[in-house]
Write a protein that binds this DNA or RNA. Structure first.
Lengths: 228, 228
DNA sequence: TAATGAAAAGGACAAATGTCCCAAAAGGAG
DNA sequence: CTCCTTTTGGGACATTTGTCCTTTTCATTA
């Protein structure tokens, strides 16, 4: 992680439509923190040092389960708020966050949050809007998780990473073990599912890559479920 | 539903430690709305008329899935906030709410929410605390849903309804069809699970009732997952 | 009381998914 | 290049869960 001292960039980020109504004052005691691809942003269980607003790039939110595997919760892109649960509930970091591409955050120190922003109507409203939105999608995801098959979850995974891939960049992971773990299954079973999709000519696998031939079919299989 | 005109009771409810720091002013344009056992409080998809604070009793939050079944999201008791997602996101009611025993709510009209309380720091903070708490539990529930077996979910269901049952009251539902639907499975399979538990002398079934013999075993099976 | 219909119980089978394991392929390190 | 580790691919089998049906039980009403 590097801290970027660039007031122009910071002002530019703060000028985003969702943020400018919140951060009106000229002076901002904020930092830009930049994480490179694959860098860990938050480690589950540790204490958080402040509030993070993701303003660029793409991150992967996972959580570990009893088995020690990482289960995918969702992908995030700008604008996302991170640290809300932790700071409001005063609990340790709830999930593991990794940058899947170079990602910038605006970092706001927790004392500034507690002393200033937690008394700021605009900020509270914005935070609340984000929290309830997350809650809404989480509730939906929860019930879908209960009912969706591995095939559906795999298709959702593909759709989600597809949209996140900027033009020209390859898909982040064609690694069976990681995908299996993320969508909560075993490599063995994921293999079976992919085998079937290859047989049906919906996807192709050439070493180290998954190539989707029929996106429409994959979208259909995903049933609208997205990890974001 | 009946609207209770009882200022003493209303003041009593508002004096609850979580509420009194929010609602300090003497004059409160609030109502008490009382729902009897099994009465529907919210119908999924309809528009909400205001904000509801559950101050007594017990409610069941469900959501319907493609199959037309009702899937259990959680049980709620006092103090719970309802309508937060709907009012903040301005969306229709997201889930079906039924009173499982006589339940009182403080009702706050939406115009008062939008005009007054959404500008009230204490209220916003409280709302945020509730929303992030829900978010925290929902995230956990979501990943458990993905991995938990029907046996686990059934045990969780039993544990949850057990705690909610006031002394002397019988368990709300010993109805196989409803339980199966709530925990997201079929009666056939629920039957098998119960059969096994009866065989292992963990539970007993005498017509129309499920009697748990070994709560410790059920708690163990539930793996700590709770619908609340 | 007899007829009727909903709910419960459960057999038979199929589909989805997990576990265990082993062999082949691919990547790295020396 | 060779050896070693990791990943992939997949066979064989067990477990979980769903589907489809039939029978039984129970409650309700004509």
């Amino acid at each position: 992680m590097q801290i970027i001292q660039d007031n122009v960039l910071c002002t530019y980020y703060l000028n985003h439509k969702e943020l400018k109504k919140v951060f009106t004052s000229e002076e901002h005691p904020f930092q830009i923190r930049r994480y490179s691809r694959n860098e860990v942003v938050f480690e589950e269980g540790e204490d958080i040092d402040g509030f993070y607003i993701q303003v660029s790039g793409r991150t992967k939110i996972t959580t570990s389960v009893i088995t020690g595997k990482a289960l995918l919760l969702r992908f995030c892109s700008a604008i996302s708020f991170m640290g809300d649960i932790e700071l409001v509930q005063k609990v340790p970091i709830q999930s593991h966050v990794t940058a899947v591409e170079d990602t910038d955050f605006i970092f706001i120190d927790q004392t500034y949050i507690y002393n200033e922003l937690m008394k700021d109507i605009a900020f509270l409203q914005q935070l609340l809007a984000h929290a309830t939105y997350k809650l809404q999608t989480c509730t939906t995801a929860s019930r879908i998780n209960l009912l969706a098959s591995v095939e559906t979850r795999f298709a959702s995974y593909l759709c989600t990473v597809r949209n996140g891939v900027s033009f020209g960049k390859e898909i982040q992971t064609a690694n069976s073990m990681e995908i299996a773990s993320l969508i909560g299954t075993t490599t063995r079973h994921l293999n079976r599912i992919m085998e079937k999709l290859v047989f049906d000519k919906v996807i192709e696998k050439n070493k180290k890559e998954i190539i989707v031939i029929e996106w429409t079919k994959i979208e259909e299989l995903s049933g609208g479920l997205r990890y974001e």
